[in-house]
């Protein structure tokens, strides 16, 4: 499904990593590890097609992702370092906008349900600027519930700022996705137990 060959990343003067490769089948989980500045985020952005590798290529079902463009982006869900929510919109509105753009089936009711499931009951109609860091992260993570059809999830530090209860909830959502044949690539500095039938650890840097 997802195949990466000889990836090399150069940022400014520094070469962050070289010759990184992997092959992921449906249901596979890739855990990208490494210290700060080892290029984890760069690798994830490369997989999304946001960043061009200095060398190597990434293929989805045997075709370069740059060729696939929009059809690849339709299969992809990316949770970035930043939450990608607008401070001046409410949590519900944020979900309506992001999921409409992603062509996911969303209604006001389903948006509220997903927010409730992530423990944001009562906060659905507040502008997200009044929410705490952890709550904002949950709003961003509520998008996961609409992306079952996205066969590739790329999650950059999904558990950051979450309390243990929310971590378990999100881990459950990820496990469901893996069980349904989705591919998940993630980074985390937290100790979270995720099980998958194919689990790959990738360590960047020395």
């Amino acid at each position: 499904m997802l195949l990466a060959n000889g990836l090399e990343c150069v940022r400014g003067e520094r070469r962050l990593f070289r010759d990184v490769g992997f092959e992921l089948d449906p249901g596979a989980l890739l855990h990208v590890q490494g210290r700060n500045g080892s290029g984890k985020t760069s690798l994830l952005r490369m997989i999304c097609g946001l960043l061009a590798p200095a060398a190597g290529d990434i293929q989805w079902n045997g075709t370069d992702i740059r060729t696939l463009a929009e059809s690849y982006r339709g299969e992809l869900f990316y949770l970035g370092h930043q939450n990608a929510i607008k401070d001046d919109l409410t949590a519900t509105e944020n979900l309506l906008v992001s999921e409409t753009l992603a062509e996911a089936p969303v209604t006001r009711a389903s948006a509220r349900d997903s927010l409730d499931r992530l423990g944001l009951k009562g906060y659905e109609d507040l502008p997200t600027r009044v929410l705490s860091q952890g709550q904002k992260r949950r709003v961003a993570l509520a998008r996961l519930l609409f992306r079952e059809r996205s066969r590739l999830w790329v999650l950059d530090e999904p558990f950051v700022a979450l309390d243990p209860h929310a971590v378990r909830e999100v881990a459950g959502i990820i496990a469901d996705q893996l069980g349904g044949g989705g591919i998940v690539i993630y980074t985390t500095h937290q100790d979270v137990d995720l099980a998958a039938h194919q689990r790959i650890e990738l360590r960047l840097g020395k």
């Binding site: 982006r73 607008k86 401070d87 992001s98 753009l101």
Partner: peptide, 22 residues
């Protein structure tokens, strides 16, 4: 700049639509 700062711009770029349209 606002969309750039909060990460929504990345999501626009990754949306399955021609970016020129957005």
């Amino acid at each position: 700049s606002g969309d750039y700062a909060d990460g929504t711009l990345e999501q626009l770029v990754l949306a399955p639509h021609p970016l020129g349209l957005l």
